[in-house]
Amino acid sequence: MVSFIRDRGMEADFRDYCGGWPCRVASLDGDGGWQPIETAPRDGTHFLATAIVRNVKTDARWWETYVIWADDETGEIHPDCDHGWSSIDDYSHWMPLPAPPDAALKGEGE
């Protein structure tokens, strides 16, 4: 998706406007652990993936982020985590899942 945006000269649109709110697409270019989707694991490892969505009627844009994983045989999105995006390449960036809270390991909050 990043190449789609860049090839059409739409970077400024996505850097300045997402769904009516200012957004920091620049942070996807290295800050915060986000990496290009082309580098996402294809071995069944779960990870966060994000995509820019645009409403064609209102031109509103926003990020949708999901936990997904690739089928270790095909390298494509596993059927159990299809959120309307049928290909990993429909997403623009990915990042590893954060570690679970320490409280859960200590039995707190039960």
Rank of each mutant, 00 (worst) to 15 (best):
V2Y: 10
S3N: 09
F4G: 06
I5L: 08
I5P: 01
R6T: 11
R6L: 09
D7C: 00
E11N: 07
E11Y: 11
A12Y: 02
A12I: 09
A12K: 12
A12L: 07
D13H: 08
F14I: 10
R15I: 07
D16M: 02
Y17K: 08
Y17H: 10
C18M: 13
G19T: 05
G19P: 06
G20F: 10
W21S: 08
P22R: 06
P22S: 08
C23K: 03
C23W: 09
C23I: 02
R24V: 03
L28G: 13
L28A: 07
D29V: 01
D29M: 11
D29F: 13
D31E: 14
D31L: 14
G33S: 07
W34A: 10
Q35C: 06
I37Q: 09
T39Y: 09
T39D: 14
A40D: 04
A40W: 03
R42S: 09
G44M: 03
T45L: 06
T45S: 13
H46S: 15
F47C: 12
F47T: 02
L48W: 13
A49Q: 06
A49H: 05
T50H: 04
T50R: 14
T50V: 15
A51D: 03
I52Y: 15
V53N: 10
V53C: 15
R54Y: 00
R54P: 00
R54M: 15
R54F: 00
N55S: 05
K57H: 10
K57N: 06
T58P: 04
T58F: 04
T58C: 04
D59R: 10
A60P: 00
A60H: 06
R61W: 01
R61V: 04
R61G: 14
R61E: 03
W62N: 07
W63S: 09
W63I: 05
T65N: 10
T65L: 02
T65P: 08
Y66E: 15
V67K: 07
V67M: 05
I68N: 03
A70W: 00
A70Y: 00
D72R: 09
G75V: 00
G75S: 01
G75C: 02
I77D: 05
D80H: 05
D80K: 13
C81K: 01
C81A: 08
C81E: 05
C81I: 04
D82L: 14
D82E: 09
H83Q: 11
G84P: 09
G84H: 09
S86Q: 14
S87G: 11
S87A: 14
S87V: 01
S87I: 00
S87L: 15
D89Y: 08
D89W: 04
D89C: 07
Y91W: 07
M95W: 02
M95T: 13
M95P: 01
M95G: 05
P96M: 08
P96E: 15
P98Y: 05
P98E: 13
P98W: 05
P98S: 12
P98G: 07
A99C: 09
A99I: 08
P100Q: 12
P100S: 15
P101N: 07
A103F: 07
